[in-house]
Design a protein around this nucleic acid. Structure first.
Length: 953
RNA sequence: GCGAGGGUAGCCAAGCCUGGAAACGGCGGCGGACUUAAGAUCCGCUCCCGUAGGGGUCCAGGGGUUCAAAUCCCCUCCCUCGCACCA
């Protein structure tokens, strides 16, 4: 039978579907195992980069089934939030990029595009035609009865229950929060909605409220700065001479700021009324008072001031800012210009930098030192930015505040900034304003600004809640183990999390219908929903109130008059929960996986807390990140059509451990396919053997192979328990192929014993490989035994076949073969006779002495030299002891014990026939001290125990 | 900057926790078998030197511990990822 994966795999898919093979219902006897993976987000199609994420849990699920567990592996679809809506919008607008992704990358037929113009239509298309069909093609052992979407009515009731309960427990809080806001669409936007500035970050400027008289009005000129602690070093201020400014009431104060700033402040929840438009020239030459020092400073003209950034008025700290230092120098030199604005140049000439912090190796005036050291003379010098960055960096970490900072004196900037700012903000001298670090543009072309919005937060900063999350974590197996620190760190680091959005799919906030609960916040404990997803369909949504879910999750004592239907569902929940394993991506450690722990800690009893998390690496395609927008993807359907699902699975699981990145390379996938095909044809040969079931006489090599098989079972089992799919499949498949290679070279395969052995080996390996390549192994195992591999048991190591001495003996044959090969290669000879001399008995005695005495050469020599016969041999004994000490050091006790029991001469004599074929020569085995030994070149005495002397002729 | 993970032969990559064989395996390359040929398959070789199983150098760089270090400790250099309101 030839290997035809397409035909074979279709047949098994149909069988599974017809039998409902992976539908899991509580089974009283078996141990329940519940495995989940984050539900996919169908905002596009599935590509090969997604496949491993779902295949790893499948392999584990299949493994646990073979171990006899009752396994639940469900899937659902996450549609919450804006990505799908955004994708639909772009499609409806006919955006070329979007159309190209749909048409070219995901092969959506032209006449189907119309169906994709509603969010759920769009989602449904990709669910059915990509995810679901792809998962079925891959052979994922999913219980399909339990699928749902997060936009389903009943799921929403479940989310409603959860948020009602969190609110009751005081874990939700209302507050203001900065968001990205498109000024055209007048809506908050997400990173996915951006054309430019995806990298932009929120930057919180401190506004230092300088007071003064501009025109004839008392006003506040808020100077925007990122370094509020430098306020004592301010010598002057700058405004743009041609900039547009306004005088306006901001909340209850009168401010002068740029016109551009007004709009931003409005978005940041300020009450604003404009009184008068001003030009920069109106500000210049005026003096304002530093709210901290009380010093009066002059506003100077500067065209480098950006009126579109923050307030459009900046303070100047020439002692610590290279920009300000140069600008001041330049202002002093241009007296003409100062007079133009009615400023007395003498007043400017008097301005000297005021240092406010010390930093080693930068002298009294760090900015001056930095600028001069770099040889910068003009503010146009492109090197200035680097010099500035270096100085800021150094000052931040090493700068020590001067004495006039009072309670803040002596501290470093790093430690003082936040405190300092909070202190003067509380006094009313400082205010704040947000800006982006770069320009941000919406996909609609509109300008995106920072807006402050009313939001509900999850209080992840709550100390008690954090404590619970740590407790949950301490009970979780984290794979790989070194991710544990990251979770702990994330738990401590998480702050308040805004859990709602203004629009998007999903569940409305129960007490405020204007808001939708965002995706990361509606997916924290949904694994529990899988346990009842298919059966809750029988309950009308209007009955699904909070009491219902309390009874469902907490049982009959949780509420008065619990709903019988809920209690019924509770039994199934109770059967499957907690989650045994959550298999997820390493990019979710920082958010989802930690939220998952917080919410379980809060909402469930300790007995329902998750037990394991394993994280997965990314997929690359031919060494580069996959990208659907660039069309740099491979679709699973295409890969499976070309190679077969078993090959795709085997490659994904064998090329790297789950948590490592893997690289989908066509040539390597092709070679995986060849390997499976070879496995198949070798298996066919074994199937053709006609051997009885009961064990025939076995030879040494057969026992050797069977012993190796037991070790492989052990290794694979241990690896599977730790999700090490690569180690497990490598051991069972590739490493064992190496053993077979040797076995085929060594053994006479026409014997009944050999054929029986090979059949045993195949039967065992099929079961060990069943989680990885279920189609092929089921087929072959059924041909071999009448039963599919997945219905058999996971193999156990059989102690009757584990034999260290057998393995040691075979190792001796391997090394003597290697040694002869080496000599043949080096000498370039083709021997007719190969003579092997086994070390004399007295050498074995020395070996025994070393074993007993230990690996101290002196001690061994002392012991050995007590024997007068040995003493006579002199240097020969010394050399031998050196060799044997080394040999013993390199081996463990079991190995040595096994070696000690080996009759070396018998081993080589048994291998004579093999060696004769191997070298096409006559092979003679002698004892070193056999008086009749034929030893033409006197080689025999170089024999060492387990390292016979060799002579070629 | 903070947090995490890495740097192994032409390339990919195992080994590192639990120190003990120039270091699994794959790809690529070279040679051979089979074949009319190609492909596939199979067998060898693939750090340097060597006509006797040997010797030399080696696991980012530099120090240290040890009889023994890719593996343990310290320092330096370089790379990847995350630092949020987003799946």
């Amino acid at each position: 039978m030839d290997y035809e994966p397409q035909e074979l795999e279709t047949r098994w898919r149909d069988r599974w579907a017809e039998a409902g093979r992976y539908e899991a219902d509580p089974d009283g006897e078996a141990e329940p195992t519940f495995i989940t993976v984050p539900y996919p987000y169908p905002s596009g199609g599935m590509h090969i980069g997604h496949c491993r994420t779902y295949t790893v849990p499948d392999v584990y699920a299949r493994y646990r089934r073979l171990q006899g567990d009752d396994v639940l592996f469900p899937i659902a679809w996450h549609v919450t939030g804006t990505p799908i809506i955004g994708a639909v919008e772009r499609l409806k607008k006919g955006e070329e990029d979007q159309l190209s992704v749909l048409r070219d990358t995901y092969n959506v037929p032209e006449d189907t595009l119309e169906d994709l113009e509603t969010p759920m239509g769009y989602a449904r298309y990709f669910i059915e035609n990509h995810y679901k069909s792809g998962m079925k093609q891959l052979g994922l052992s999913i219980d399909w009865r339990r699928e749902f979407t997060t936009n389903d009515e009943r799921y929403s009731k479940f989310i409603t229950w959860q948020y009602e309960r969190l609110k009751e427990r005081g874990l939700l809080e209302k507050g203001l929060h900065p968001v990205k806001f498109c000024t055209d669409e007048e809506n908050p936007v997400t990173t996915h909605d951006l054309l430019e500035g995806e990298e932009a970050e929120f930057q919180e400027y401190t506004l230092v409220k300088f007071e003064g008289e501009i025109g004839s009005d008392d006003v506040i000129a808020p100077m925007a700065t990122l370094r509020p602690e430098t306020v004592r070093g301010v010598t002057n201020a700058y405004a743009h001479p041609d900039g547009e400014y306004v005088r306006a009431t901001v909340d209850s104060e009168t401010w002068v700021v740029s016109s551009a700033a007004v709009e931003k402040l409005r978005l940041q929840e300020r009450d604003i009324e404009i009184h008068e438009e001003l030009s920069g020239a109106d500000l210049i030459g005026e003096t304002v008072t530093n709210p901290i020092t009380g010093d009066e400073v002059l506003i100077l003209p500067a065209t480098f001031v950006d009126t579109d950034n923050a307030t459009g008025v900046v303070m100047s700290v020439p002692a610590h800012s290279p920009d300000d230092y140069l600008a001041l120098q330049e202002a002093k030199e241009d007296e003409e210009r100062l007079r133009e604005y009615g400023i007395d140049p003498a007043d400017v000439a008097d301005i000297e930098p005021i240092p406010i912090l010390d930093i080693e190796e930068y002298g009294d005036v760090p900015a001056k030192t930095a600028v001069e050291a770099a040889g910068i003379e003009s503010s146009d010098d492109p090197e200035l930015a680097d010099v500035t960055a270096d100085l800021y960096q150094a000052e931040f970490h090493q700068g020590v505040m001067h004495d006039d900072y009072g309670e803040f004196a002596g501290m470093t900037v790093e430690n003082v900034r936040e405190q300092f700012r909070a202190h003067y903000a509380a006094e009313g001298a400082f205010d704040e304003m947000y800006e982006f670090t770069e320009e941000v543009v919406c996909r609609c072309g509109g300008d995106v600004e920072v807006a402050k919005q009313d939001t509900w937060f999850l209080r992840y900063n709550d100390a008690e809640w954090k404590q619970k999350a740590h407790q949950v974590l301490s009970g979780i197996d984290t794979i790989p183990e070194n991710t544990r620190d990251q979770y702990d760190h994330t738990i401590d680091w998480l702050n308040e999390w805004p859990c709602i959005r203004n629009y998007g799919l999903g569940t409305r906030l129960p007490w405020d219908e204007d808001f939708v609960i965002e995706p990361l916040s509606d997916s924290t404990i949904y694994m529990s929903y899988y346990t009842i997803a298919h059966r809750i369909e029988d309950v009308p949504p209007e009955d699904l109130d909070t009491d219902f879910f309390d009874a469902l999750f907490y049982g009959e004592d949780a509420v008065e008059n619990p709903d019988e239907r809920a209690l019924d569902l509770h039994e199934e929940f109770d059967h499957w929960y907690p989650v045994d394993w959550r298999c997820s991506g390493n990019d979710l450690i920082n958010n989802h996986l930690t939220f998952f722990q917080f919410h379980h800690g809060e909402l469930f009893d300790e007995s329902k807390w998750p037990e394991g998390i394993t994280i997965m690496g990314m997929g690359l395609l031919e060494g580069e990140a996959m990208s659907s927008s660039k069309g740099h993807v491979v679709l699973p359907s295409k890969a499976i059509d070309e190679y077969g699902a078993d090959t795709v699975r085997f490659f994904l699981l064998n090329s790297a451990e789950p948590w490592q990145d893997y690289d989908w390379r066509d040539d390597l996938v092709g070679s995986t396919r060849d390997q499976l095909e070879r496995f198949w044809s070798r298996a066919q040969e074994v199937l053709d053997f006609d051997v009885p079931d009961e064990q025939p006489d076995l030879e040494h090599v057969d026992r050797w192979l069977l012993s190796k098989l037991q070790g492989t079972v052990r290794e694979a089992t241990e690896a599977m328990d730790g999700f090490e799919t690569r180690t497990a499949s490598q051991a069972v498949f590739y490493s064992f192929e190496e053993h077979l290679k040797w076995y085929r070279r060594r053994a006479d395969l026409d014997r009944e014993g050999a054929q029986w052995t090979l059949r045993e080996v195949l039967r065992t390996r099929l079961r060990l490989l069943a989680p990885f390549v279920p189609f092929m192994t089921n087929e072959l195992h059924e041909q071999l035994t009448g039963e599919p591999a997945e219905d058999a048991d996971w193999p156990e190591p059989d102690p009757a076949f584990e034999d260290e001495r057998v393995e040691r003996r075979e190792r001796l044959v391997e090394s003597v073969t290697d040694d002869i090969h080496d000599i043949v290669d080096v000498t370039g000879t083709d021997p007719d006779t190969v003579r092997v001399y086994v070390a004399a008995d007295w050498k074995r005695d020395v070996f025994e002495t070393v074993r007993e005495t230990g690996t101290n050469v002196g001690a061994v020599m002392g012991q050995v030299m007590e024997d007068p016969d040995l003493r006579e041999k002199g240097d020969a004994v010394n050399d031998l002891v050196q060799d044997l000490v080394e040999l013993v050091r390199e081996r463990d006790d079991d190995e040595l014990a096994a070696l000690a029991g080996v009759d070396e001469q018998a081993v080589y004599e048994d291998a004579e026939a093999f060696l004769e074929t191997e070298f096409d020569a006559t092979v003679e085995v002698y004892a070193e001290d056999d008086p009749d030994a034929d030893d033409p070149d006197g080689k025999a005495d170089s024999a060492v125990p387990f390292r016979p002397a060799i002579h070629l002729a």
